[in-house]
C-alpha cells in the first residue's frame, strides 16, 4: 500500500460512455495483483472531497489503466484529465482474487465494466478459460478483444439482444454449465452488480464449486479505518452467525459461501 503522485499518460473514449485512463504509476503499478483496486484523488470539483475507488483494468510495467463510466460528479470531472496532469493514487488496496486451482476450468462472469476487474486475472492464469459478460446493450460489453487476445472464449448476453444472446449473463453461463462442461469442474470469478454476484454464488453452491465474488461498496478511506464499506459475512463465532467485513480490507473478493446477502440484493 503506497501513496503516489501519478501522471496521466493518456485518456480516451471506449465504447458508449466508457473511458480509459492510463497513468504513469511506477510505485504502485508493479505491485497490483488481480482484483485489487486503487483509491484515486479526483482533480475537481474541489467540493467532491473523497477519493474514488477503481478496479485496476491492467498494468504494464510502470503503467496502470483504469476503465470507468462518468456517472457522478467526481467521475464526470475525471473526463477532463489529460496528458501530464497529476493524479494522487493510493494503492494497491484489497485482497484481490486467488489464483484458480490447477484442476478447475476458470470461468469469469462480468456485468458491464466488471470486466475491467477480471482482465488481470485472465492474464495471470497460464491457461485459457471462458468469460461470460452481460450488459444492458452492446456498448456495455467491454474488453472483448483483450480477452480474445489471451485466447479466452467470450460468451455474451445483452438485455436488449443487441449483442450475443438476449437476457442476463446467467443465460449463457447456465447453458455452459449444463451442456459444455462435461466432467470438468468450474471455478467461478465474478464482478458486477449484487444480484448477478448472488446468482453466480447460488449456482456455485448448488454445483459444489467455488465462486469468488468481487463486491462493490461505496468507500471512504479505502484502508479499513472509517468502517464505511461493510459487507455482511458468515462468522460462526459471532452472534447470529454473521459479522461485518470491510470490503476495502477483507475484500473486495469473498468466496460466495462467506457472504450473507440481504433481502433484495
Amino acid at each position: 500500500m503506497r501513496l503516489e503522485n501519478s501522471t496521466v499518460i493518456e485518456q480516451f473514449a471506449d465504447q458508449g460512455d466508457y473511458r480509459r485512463l492510463v497513468l504513469h504509476a511506477p510505485a504502485i503499478a508493479p505491485e497490483v495483483r488481480p482484483g485489487q483496486f486503487v483509491h484515486m484523488r479526483l482533480p475537481a470539483p474541489a467540493d467532491a472531497i473523497l477519493r474514488r475507488p477503481f478496479s485496476v483494468f491492467r498494468t504494464h510495467a510502470d503503467m496502470l489503466e483504469i476503465l470507468y463510466k462518468p456517472l457522478g460528479r467526481g467521475t464526470r470531472a475525471m473526463q477532463r484529465l489529460s496528458r501530464g496532469d497529476a493524479v494522487g493514487l493510493l494503492g494497491p488496496l484489497g485482497n484481490g482474487f486467488p489464483m484458480p486451482s490447477p484442476v478447475t476450468v476458470p470461468a469469469l462472469v462480468a456485468g458491464g465494466y466488471g470486466m475491467a476487474a477480471l482482465y488481470l486475472l485472465a492474464r495471470a492464469v497460464r491457461r485459457a478459460g471462458i468469460v461470460f459478460v452481460g450488459g444492458a446493450t452492446a456498448s456495455d460489453i467491454l474488453c472483448v478483444p483483450e480477452f480474445k487476445a489471451l485466447g479466452w472464449e467470450v460468451r455474451i448476453a445483452t438485455e436488449d439482444g443487441s449483442l450475443g444472446v438476449r437476457g442476463l449473463v446467467t443465460a449463457p453461463l447456465d447453458a455452459w454449465l449444463a451442456a459444455d462442461l462435461g466432467d470438468r469442474r468450474p471455478e467461478l470469478f465474478a464482478c458486477g452488480p449484487n444480484p448477478m454476484l448472488r446468482a453466480v454464488g447460488d449456482r456455485a453452491i448448488a454445483g459444489g464449486w467455488r465462486a469468488w465474488l468481487s463486491v462493490d461498496r461505496s468507500m471512504g478511506c479505502g484502508v479499513g479505518a472509517c468502517l464505511t464499506c461493510v459487507q455482511k459475512v458468515r462468522d460462526p463465532a459471532a452472534p447470529d452467525g454473521w459479522t461485518w467485513a470491510r470490503v476495502c480490507r477483507e475484500g473486495p473478493v469473498f468466496e460466495c459461501r462467506d457472504i450473507v446477502w440481504e433481502d433484495g440484493e
Binding site: 461505496s218 472509517c226 468502517l227 461493510v230 459487507q231
Partner: peptide
Amino acid sequence: RGNPPPRTVE
C-alpha cells in the same frame, strides 16, 4: 456492530 450500510454519504 454499528449501523447497516450505507453508512456514509459525500
